[in-house]
Nucleic acid binder design. Structure first.
Lengths: 144, 144
DNA sequence: CTTAAATCAGAGGAAATTAGTCGGAATTGG
DNA sequence: CCAATTCCGACTAATTTCCTCTGATTTAAG
């Protein structure tokens, strides 16, 4: 029941971009160095984030990435889902309800628990925005 | 961010035992057949549940497993933690707070999110008991 | 125009985790 | 005794995760 490095690295990178929002693009190299993440690996993650429409990229010299919209308009759920796929405790419950229903779905009493977990989890993910995390970062390391 | 088969199978087995609570031990073979789980694999899981003090076992002929206490006194968190280990979105946050703090813990702004997830997740796990799931099972398949 | 700095795309591979199997020892009711 | 059952630990196969690499494309700056 763990978020993988994709989610952890992806979110850290996005907080980094949130801190620099409005100041033009930041290169992969910079983000990777700041967060001590493999540059090649982060490249993959940024690809997912771009395809999900969460970041804009600028190619070529002086290029890089920047948030596609304000930090307050991007939830941590948006980010995690983009890099990790649906955040759900079991396969048969995802954002769309039930993608591949188990055969005995009507007889699956444990489903009750999975639904509760899914609901609470996504409530947190959708209500915590990059702005919240950016503010937290500034609180922890003032005017850096 | 998924519960593995250990958690899914383990919980299903425990609901099975909850349905038969007070009627003497049930054999691994029976549980495995009912839930369509590998007998050998389930054997491992029952071992974890026994070591966690959630089930009592009886060896020899006519032996088997039964809940160590009433279904209302066993939470789904007890079960999942016994078979899956700590239920936490990231390694640095578990039941004991912070086992292996990341170096930059004071600068880890994403920790805010992980804490919120951890809190809500465990709130659900601790408040949903085997009695809740047993009742759900009866509701779905009356007097079977 | 050339060049260096970047992103983009996708293949591939090592390591870790998960899922499942198995053989044999120990225990116990009939 | 015997058959049914749990107990224990090792082992293997499959899957997933994590990361690396190569080459192509784009673009700002000199």
């Amino acid at each position: 029941m763990r978020i993988t490095t994709r989610g952890r690295y992806g979110l850290k990178a996005m907080v980094e971009l949130a801190l620099a929002f409005g100041q033009g693009p930041i290169s992969l190299k910079n983000i990777a160095a700041n967060q001590e993440i493999s540059e090649y690996y982060l490249e993959q993650l940024m690809g997912s984030l771009r395809k999900a429409g969460l970041v804009k990229s600028a190619r070529g010299a002086q290029g890089g990435y920047e948030l596609a919209r304000a930090p307050s308009e991007i939830s941590s759920g948006d980010v995690l889902r983009a890099v990790e796929g649906p955040i759900s405790p079991v396969e048969c419950i995802d954002e769309n309800g039930c993608r591949e229903p188990c055969e005995k779905i009507d007889l699956c009493s444990t489903r009750l628990l999975w639904l509760r977990m899914h609901e609470q989890l996504n409530k947190v993910l959708d209500s915590t925005t990059l702005e919240d995390l950016r503010a937290e970062a500034e609180r922890l390391a003032p005017q850096s």
